[in-house]
Amino acid sequence: MAYKIIEGCVNCWACLPLCPSEAIREALPHFTIDARACTECEGDFADPQCASICPIEGVILDGLGVPVNPPGSLTGIPPDRWAEIRTQIQAR
């Protein structure tokens, strides 16, 4: 099983040096995880390192394709609130 970085990643580099398997690659439009190299940090750390420092919600998926940091979990911003404000701003 392997973690995956998806669209929305801001290429901030935070995860790359932490990966014990050197599975993270700098790439465009966003960084990627080499699925063959990723161990989900098993045997190295209690928590998967990339997902523990990533500041962006929803952009790292676990082996089952589920976001490790779902919307609202890192910023504390209720997802509905963001959607509501975005609509207001666009309506200006």
Binding site: G8, A14, G76
Partner: peptide, 14 residues
């Protein structure tokens, strides 16, 4: 220096 090790409520990295 793009990486950060904390989140502040006045910052949005996106």
């Amino acid at each position: 220096a793009p990486a950060c090790n904390i989140q502040c409520h006045y910052c949005n990295r996106k």
